[in-house]
Amino acid sequence: MIKKVALVAFAAVVLLFYVPFLALGYYMSGGGVLKLPSMSMLATTFMLALVTAAIAIALAYPAAYYLAKRGNELEFALLIAPLWVGTLLKAYSLLVVFSVVERITGIVLWGTALGVVVGMVYEYFPYAVLTLYAAIEKLSETPTQAARVLGASRAQAFLRVELPLTMPGVVAAFILIFLFAVGEVIMPAVLGAWKVYTVGSYIWDLYFKARDFLSGSVLSMLLAALSLLATYVVVKTIRSFSI
């Protein structure tokens, strides 16, 4: 009985989640004028995603390292908990903070690429912490100790042993965040005030403004394929990591 319910539920996942993509295929096969995003828009999107992933990882690595070695549950929970706060709420909170910052310091963040990066780093930072934490926590102490006994200073042991051994985690975090960031809509829209225009915003506009299902479908499918491919790569890297 339970098996049947579960199979029905699984069928529901496929039906509700994967089958709608067939509709995109339908619209794609319908043909029409394909409006591809401009090079500058692609460049903006990829640059934003790259910078976001790089900053989030750079900020998260020391914290994840600390959490894995000495952190307590509270510190871990506090760093991860913002995952459960919705993106729109975060964007809105930052918007308010930006207006205060602008008033006090005169630095304009709203409507700039910098503001969007701040928002995206804010949003994806917990993912970086989680992924890096998993990689660092798995690390055994003894290779580092071996390096120390063989003459490596603390810094040398970190650079030559710990960092290379956690590199797969860094790669996984990078791919994960890059992917989320490429499809991002809310942060560029709210914090970039539609002035920072990304592929996500473009797909959004294709649907809501132009009602252009063809171009939207092509882009969405590309984005989806990219994400599945990247997920596959992440899973592979993490697996080969556990020697």
Partner: peptide
């Protein structure tokens, strides 16, 4: 299958649903 669904970009998925 489920993991793939979770990491899929939200716009893609939303557009697919709207298209359907």
């Amino acid at each position: 299958f489920s993991q793939g669904a979770v990491v899929m970009p939200e716009v893609s998925e939303a557009l697919a649903f709207a298209a359907a």
